[in-house]
């Protein structure tokens, strides 16, 4: 028994899966994992730390995240405090200097684009506000492609040998987005949208669809009866679409749909864990379809 335990222990220590010479990337959410896979291609190993069906804002640091960060050369995060509930703790627990904030191995997409909804008062009586801006840029393909260039630049600085390969991949991802963006903008023709939370605001803005309000009272505060009544009062007579993310409660959206007679759509905000660009574009297609007319 004792020998067996020692042997097991030894196996754990020398498990060789990482010894491939590739850049190890730990992505905080599946969309960032997809982007890292697109840009890094076969030169990187990507580990995604959270699943698509959870709100990455409400998770806590887990042992598997710390193990992934221990192995990582680069952490690819959405940023702007989206992962603030767990990423700082997980990095602290990972004993890895490479991915500490301020190091080359720490990458936040939000640092490389212009954020929307910035400059709100840092006052939590307004809910779980993030004065730095809305972090959910990853549902806007154009912004994501821009972040792709920054990520390529970062990978290139860490692995100069393959620098042009990463840059080329970023260009390719961008041109794939450009091929589709006109069609998306044309098809998404809803008069307006009433989402549960601001998860898709970047996409709505990109597609030129007005955002009426949110079903939740304030960021992070679930809907109350009086808030829903006032929404019904304000929006009656207008046309629009109701959306919510798969991990959000359906009661408020379904109630609003019943009251206003608007279609309601339950949609993903993240691609499947192993997805590539194709999976991401399919997800955007689903959103566009939902937003195509009232």
């Amino acid at each position: 028994m004792k020998k067996f335990i020692i042997l097991m222990f030894f196996c754990i220590l020398i498990a060789p899966s990482w010894a491939s010479g590739k850049l190890n990337v730990a992505a905080t959410v599946p969309n960032m994992g997809m982007l890292a896979r697109e840009i890094g291609g076969n030169k990187v190993n990507v580990t995604v730390m959270t699943p698509p069906d959870r709100d990455a804002h409400y998770l806590e640091a887990r042992p598997s995240m710390m193990a992934a960060l221990r192995r990582a050369d680069l952490v690819a995060a959405v940023g702007a405090e989206l992962e603030i509930g767990w990423l700082p703790a997980a990095i602290r627990g990972a004993n890895n200097p490479r991915v500490q904030t301020g190091r080359t191995g720490y990458f936040e997409g939000a640092a490389h684009i212009e954020l929307i909804e910035t400059g709100q008062a840092a006052d939590r009586s307004k809910g779980d506000v993030h004065p730095a801006g809305n972090p959910h840029f990853d549902l806007d393909p154009v912004k994501l492609a821009k972040v792709g260039h920054a990520l390529a630049q970062r990978m290139a600085s860490m692995d100069t040998e393959n620098a042009s390969y990463y840059r080329q991949n970023a260009l390719e991802f961008e041109s794939k987005v450009e091929e589709r963006i006109d069609r998306w903008m044309e098809e998404a023709s809803a008069d307006g949208v009433l989402p549960y939370h601001g998860d898709a605001n970047y996409l709505f803005r990109r597609l030129g669809i007005p955002i009426y309000d949110t079903i939740e009272v304030l960021p992070g505060i679930p809907p109350t009866a009086s808030h829903l009544r006032s929404l019904v009062r304000d929006l009656r007579g207008k046309e629009g679409i109701i959306t919510y993310i798969i991990f959000q409660p359906s009661r408020g959206p379904e109630f609003m749909s019943g009251q206003l007679g608007w279609p309601v759509h339950r949609l993903p905000a993240q691609v499947p864990v192993e997805a590539e660009a194709k999976g991401y574009f399919e997800m955007i297609d689903r959103w566009v379809e939902a937003l195509s007319g009232n």
């Binding site: 301020g102 993030h130 730095a132």
Partner: peptide, 15 residues
Amino acid sequence: SGFLVSGGDAPVGAG
């Protein structure tokens, strides 16, 4: 501060 300067390796946030 990542809030004022973008493009670096610092986290963006009020913190």
